[in-house]
Amino acid sequence: MAKQKAGVYDKVLECAKEEFLSKGFLDASLRTIAQAADTSTGSIYTRFGDKEGLFRAIAEPVVDQFKSMFRRVQEDFHQLSEEEQRADMGQYTARHQEEMLDYIYDHFDVFRLLLDGAHGTRFSCFLDELVDIEVEYTYKYMEVIGCESVKSGLVTEEFIHIIVTAYFNGMFEVVRHNMDRAAAHRYVKMLNRYHMAGFSTVFDPQS
């Protein structure tokens, strides 16, 4: 087997990220990426398999770590007592939202790709996967606090899905608007207060 030239792998990833950001996955050209990386399309196929494999090499490590972080935050909260969950829900969410936001800004270009350049890949459903996790743990929280609003039919499952989707779309607008990190933290803090007030109508719909 021929020895692979040092540095080509990282250079291909760098050039691929720029091409995907500029054109999106579907319109991105492996030929253009290869030329920019001073290599051949054959070397890209050897290293990554195909264009989606190249996109996956950029996106998958970030997505897997972010989802793992998000599930850990949710599960750690679920392990708290009912009293602790009732008392700390809003503050807990705000604290860990900042942690997740910093992770997003540490990998800003990848999240730009996930939001606006992933159509045609399995990563195009990234936000939907986050929504599903949040909905799952929202139901767990409602069970812990004895919330009957869904069981009674006063609040529907579809409505919970809608408000959680709005919550995540709002959070990721900081990426779509290319906000700097400090502005994003201010925006998301305000957004969190707004949504926590709204969620109270689900958890205590009679108030």
Rank of each mutant, 00 (worst) to 15 (best):
A36P: 00
Y105S: 14
E136V: 00
D204S: 14
Q91H: 07
D132Q: 13
F66H: 08
K17H: 03
N192S: 14
L26K: 14
Y167A: 01
K151L: 09
I44A: 08
G90S: 14
F48Q: 04
S207L: 12
E52Y: 08
V110E: 15
C125G: 04
Q91K: 14
S149D: 06
Q97G: 05
G198L: 07
F123V: 04
L130M: 08
E19M: 13
F126Y: 15
Y137T: 10
E157P: 00
H78G: 00
T165R: 15
D50V: 11
V164A: 06
A183T: 15
L127Q: 02
Q65E: 15
E82K: 15
R112Q: 15
T93P: 01
E75H: 04
T46N: 08
H96Q: 02
G117P: 11
V131T: 09
F66V: 01
Y167V: 00
F159V: 10
E75F: 00
C147W: 06
R56Y: 01
E19R: 12
V8D: 04
Q65W: 02
Q79C: 03
I58G: 00
N169D: 15
N169G: 14
D109C: 07
Y194I: 10
K17L: 09
A6D: 07
R122Y: 05
E52M: 11
G146D: 10
V63R: 12
G24H: 06
F111C: 11
M190K: 12
G198H: 07
F20N: 02
E129Q: 15
D64F: 12
D128Y: 13
E14D: 12
A28L: 11
Y141D: 04
R122G: 09
F66Q: 01
Q85G: 02
A166K: 11
F126C: 05
S29M: 11
L154Y: 13
R47N: 07
L80F: 12
V150I: 15
K51G: 02
E60V: 05
M69N: 15
S40Y: 03
V164D: 01
V155M: 14
D27H: 14
G90K: 10
L127V: 09
L80R: 14
H195A: 13
D38C: 05
G170A: 13
F20A: 03
K17P: 01
D204Y: 13
L26G: 03
V202R: 00
R31F: 06
E129G: 02
Q206K: 13
M100D: 01
V144R: 12
I104S: 05
M69G: 12
Y45W: 10
Y92G: 07
E75M: 08
A2Q: 09
V110P: 06
Y187C: 05
S22L: 14
V8G: 01
L115K: 10
D88G: 04
R122H: 08
D106V: 00
Y45D: 02
V144C: 08
S29Q: 14
E143K: 15
G42C: 06
E18N: 10
D109Q: 13
A118T: 14
Y105P: 11
H119D: 12
E134K: 08
D50G: 09
M142P: 05
I145F: 08
G49P: 09
I58M: 11
L54A: 04
Q4T: 08
R71P: 00
R176F: 12
D180Y: 03
V110D: 08
L54T: 04
R95F: 01
S124C: 12
Q79L: 09
E129N: 14
S68R: 13
D38G: 04
Q4D: 05
I33D: 07
G42T: 09
I162S: 12
N192G: 05
